[in-house]
Computed example of a mutant assay.
Amino acid sequence: MLLRYIFLRALMLIPVSISISVVIFMIVHLLPGDPIDNLIRVGSSPEDRAALVVKYGLDQPLFVQYFRWVGAMFQGDFGEAIVLRRPVADLIGQNLPYSLQLGALAFLFSSTVGIILGTISATTRSAIVEQFVRGFILLGSTVPGFWLALLMILFFAVQLQWFPVSGARSWESLVLPVLTIGFGGVALVARVTRVALLDVRREDFVMLLHAKGLSSRTILFRHLMPHAMLPVVTILALRIGWILGGAVTVEFVFGRPGLGSLLIRALGQRDYPVVQGCLLMLALAVMLGTLIGDVAQAAMDPRIREAKK
């Protein structure tokens, strides 16, 4: 049953992927300017510009360019960067490991700390601790990532000089970007964990467990947490795509290589194939995270599989 559910959910991603590819292609090509502006030299004639337009197929109708792009992707070819003049697949392959490393550490940080803080907030009897955690959740939910990144650089890198301002040469260069991306994730995961635990604690079976004489620790970790983890697992799976998307501005602010830096540079140059490839990778990460979340939910709760038949 679970395999059938996974197959059906994966099948549903096909029309979604096609729709996303159309949206990405149209948005990129409707932006003002084009990559030819970054290729022609000062004083070039209109004929030189027209020759470059024809060379890169930009004179074709948009639907022709789209189908050529999609057809090449089915053959594993993401095209060639117009300005950088390198295969897009090579550029993505060169920068993706940096984004995955940053995203994995930020995901681990936000998941672990978020679940711990959410559990503390839901189970503590100290008003001070609860108010502190709730204040942290509110702060993390409202502070923009790029603004937090600038504050991190100003305080920890410039003033205290604990960590490098930019680059990716050592593990120290990962600390500030991971904290910046993970901060908002901690707040989100903590809030979901807190609400889920409080909801489960109101169930009748919890009163029965207390009546049986089980300790609060046993009830929490053996009975409450497994029930409360269903929405938490869902939000964590969605964070997979959100983290890679959130890393776009953070990588640029910290001067790190990665998909984010590559995307922003390509946007400035209007390098269509690179922008399309990067956006498609980010979209696939979001869809993959959604699929993982749905499968995890179905594996934890059989009622979801039954409802999806």
Rank of each mutant, 00 (worst) to 15 (best):
V248Y: 01
A72R: 04
P273R: 00
M300W: 06
V253S: 00
M73E: 02
P46Q: 13
G76N: 06
L13N: 05
L224V: 15
R217S: 13
V275W: 00
Q131L: 07
L150P: 00
D77P: 02
T124S: 08
E47L: 11
I304R: 13
V88W: 00
L188D: 02
F221D: 08
K308L: 13
S19T: 15
F67I: 14
F146N: 04
E172G: 10
N38Y: 11
R305W: 07
L2R: 09
R134H: 04
D199Y: 06
L208F: 11
F78Y: 07
V286S: 09
M281I: 15
Y5A: 08
V175K: 00
A228C: 10
V286D: 03
R202V: 14
V186G: 02
Q161Y: 09
A237M: 06
R4C: 05
P15D: 08
R202C: 10
I6C: 07
L209E: 06
T290W: 07
S173M: 05
W171T: 10
T123N: 11
D301I: 10
G182K: 07
V158H: 09
S110N: 10
W69G: 00
S170Q: 07
H227D: 08
P32I: 15
F155Y: 15
L151Q: 09
N38V: 14
D59R: 12
I219T: 06
R201E: 04
A298M: 09
S173I: 11
V286K: 04
F136I: 13
L176A: 05
F221L: 15
G135Q: 05
G213V: 09
A307D: 12
R256I: 13
F163D: 03
I20W: 01
G57R: 04
I240G: 03
V232H: 01
S121F: 00
I36Q: 01
G114R: 01
W162A: 13
V54Q: 14
S141M: 14
F107R: 04
N38T: 14
P46N: 14
V206Y: 03
A228G: 07
D90H: 08
S110M: 12
G289A: 09
I18M: 14
F252Y: 13
Y66Q: 03
P32D: 09
M300Y: 07
F25H: 02
A106W: 00
T180V: 15
E130G: 15
W147L: 14
G33W: 05
F67N: 10
D90Y: 06
S126V: 08
I115L: 06
I36Y: 02
V200T: 04
I27N: 08
